[in-house]
């Protein structure tokens, strides 16, 4: 058996016995989901460049305040929990969507928006406190890298919140049509990916500030 036969042979447990080469294009749900998955991975690669910049510049405080002086761990823990619970309620949203339950969907989407909004509010308050303490992005290379990395994540959260509001409006007006469901699945992937990036942020930026 040649390698080509091996690769095109249907996997065991697959009900459809047609070889992959003769099945035609994949259904649009699969294509859209995979395309969005690739976008998310490229987004995470962009974040990795910002993480690398932060790791390189974290010690270059130019005589200004360092992370140990600026960050409050308890505050960051509250931010983290807001985002983590919003990830859970986002999962509840997608379960409500699979059940076609508009009421449950709107409720969980609202809770997700409130938790995401709380995270964003805490972050904006932290940024403005730091800028008021003369520790803004222009103070040192360390702070430039910090504001770029954490600010880019915050910008993503803002876009995700706007996307949630738009999806609530689409479910209210269009109902659970296939196109709305596809967009919702992409949105839940986006929201969970933001939580994964935040794990990197709180580990490297906030908890790593001791070294």
């Amino acid at each position: 058996m040649s390698l080509a036969d091996d690769l095109t042979r249907p996997v065991e447990g697959d009900e459809d016995t047609t070889p992959y080469s003769e099945r035609g294009p994949a259904p649009i749900d699969v294509v859209a989901g995979f395309g969005f998955w690739l976008f998310l991975l490229s987004d995470i690669v962009m974040f990795s460049a910002l993480f690398a910049a932060y790791a390189v510049l974290a010690d270059h405080t130019a005589g200004g305040p360092d992370g140990l002086k600026l960050f409050n761990r308890g505050y960051v823990l509250i931010e983290t929990m807001c985002l983590l619970f919003s990830s859970f309620t986002c999962g509840m949203c997608s379960l409500a969507m699979e059940r076609r339950s508009a009421g449950a969907f709107h409720l969980w989407a609202l809770v997700t928006i409130l938790l995401g909004g709380a995270f964003l509010g805490l972050e904006i308050a932290e940024f403005s406190r730091m800028i008021a303490e003369d520790a803004g992005p222009t103070r040192s290379a360390f702070l430039s890298a910090f504001f770029t990395l954490v600010g880019t994540h915050g910008l993503h959260v803002t876009l995700g919140l706007l996307w949630f509001v738009s999806m609530m409006a689409q479910v209210a007006t269009l109902g659970f049509q296939p196109v709305v469901m596809r967009r919702l699945r992409c949105l839940t992937l986006f929201w969970h990916a933001l939580d994964i990036v935040w794990i990197g942020v709180f580990t490297i930026v906030y908890l790593g500030a001791r070294w």
């Binding site: 996997v11 065991e12 447990g13 697959d14 995979f34 998955w37 690739l38 991975l41 490229s42 995470i44 690669v45 990795s48 460049a49 993480f51 690398a52 910049a53 790791a55 390189v56």
Partner: peptide, 26 residues
């Protein structure tokens, strides 16, 4: 599982690129 092969391969490649960028830069 078999339905997730493409997603998993893309994820592994993504993790590889992230590792190259972060550890290479440092």
């Amino acid at each position: 599982g078999p339905g997730d092969t493409n997603n998993l391969l893309a994820l592994i490649f993504g993790v590889f690129v992230v590792g190259l960028v972060v550890f290479g830069s440092i």
